[in-house]
């Protein structure tokens, strides 16, 4: 049994799971925004990065991890709301290229501003738990207390989002506003407020993600930390279907594990090639994602 847990295959699965939940969280926040506003938020990673900087740079050097995490989440929520109210609101109903361009511009502004304030030097964040892998019969298991904390936190975040959407009046209103804005408005749902709330929620999820990514020993926090993570998260969201939160989560975790195998058995450069190939193939086979019901476009 010990040999099983420390085997190469199991190490890849566990390591992949730790990365996969991160991709799943990024994918989840993309899906939340896509469903409610039909905007693919290219600035998602940068917004999350900025929130993490606020959490950890503003309070330094009194670095209590949990206080910083809380500040980062608040910063993320506020930033999400502000972004929706100022930039995004002007983009509703415009040609679908406009939001893409605007969000890419916003991404550039956020990354440049972060680099102007905090420089591009990598900043390592404190970790609340040990990053040293557990040992089993003298051999390492590919799971450390910190990695376990990452996975648990991700699951908690997903659960909170699911509970909010499924079991609260707010969640019902959020879903109604996304599904049919006109009818919802007639029935008394404050649709514009719901859109803002959707962005706040997604951006808060993003902030948690960025803190998890940045306190990982291997990455650290730089203004471009989230670029690669965002790309993988987008791939997960696109493969799973931008309309399907469940699809995004499943695809994120599966991709994380798959990439770990590719990295281990081929090499780490091959990961992004495989990811790109997978994205292209899956978009050609099912352009709307593997987990969404197909809707025909009408004239």
């Amino acid at each position: 049994m010990d040999a099983f847990w420390t085997s190469r295959v199991m190490s890849d699965i566990l390591g992949g799971l730790t990365n996969g939940v991160i991709y799943a969280l990024v994918a989840l926040s993309l899906v939340l925004i896509w469903r409610s506003t039909r905007i693919l938020n290219f600035a998602q990673g940068a917004m999350a990065m900025l929130a993490a900087y606020v959490g950890f740079a503003v309070l330094a050097p009194s670095t209590n991890y949990w206080v910083s995490m809380a500040v980062a989440i608040v910063a993320g929520v506020v930033l999400g709301g502000l972004t929706e109210r100022t930039v995004v609101r002007t983009l509703y109903g415009k040609p679908e290229i406009n939001p893409v361009v605007a969000m890419v511009g916003f991404l550039l502004v956020l990354e440049s501003v972060a680099a102007a304030i905090w420089s591009t030097t990598e900043r390592s964040l404190p970790t609340p738990f040990s990053i040293i892998d557990w040992q089993l019969a003298g051999r390492p298991v590919a799971m450390s207390p910190f990695a376990l904390y990452e996975v648990v936190t991700a699951i908690v975040v997903m659960a909170v989002v699911a509970i909010v959407f499924q079991f609260t009046s707010l969640g019902l209103q959020l879903r109604a506003a996304a599904l049919n804005p006109e009818v919802s408005r007639l029935l008394g749902v404050r649709v514009t407020r719901m859109l803002t709330l959707g962005w706040m929620l997604a951006s808060g999820v993003g902030a948690v993600t960025a803190v998890l990514v940045a306190s990982n020993y291997f990455t650290g926090l730089t203004p471009t930390t989230m670029d690669g993570v965002f790309a993988f998260g987008f791939i997960a969201a696109a493969v799973g279907g931008l309309d399907s939160p469940v699809g995004a989560l499943v695809a994120g975790v599966l991709l994380g594990v798959a990439f770990q195998f590719v990295g281990d058995f081929i090499n780490s450069n091959a990961i992004i090639l495989v990811a790109l190939g997978l994205l292209i193939v899956s978009l050609m086979v099912r352009p709307s994602g593997l987990f969404t019901r197909r809707t025909e476009r009408r004239v």
Partner: peptide
């Protein structure tokens, strides 16, 4: 461009973004 035949705006943008990010690894 092959997948572009079936993709609309944001999806295509995301796919080309993935290519741009992947380029140095390629």
């Amino acid at each position: 461009g092959l997948p572009a035949t079936r993709l609309r705006g944001p999806y295509l943008a995301g796919m080309t973004l993935a290519f741009a990010v992947a380029f140095s690894a390629i």
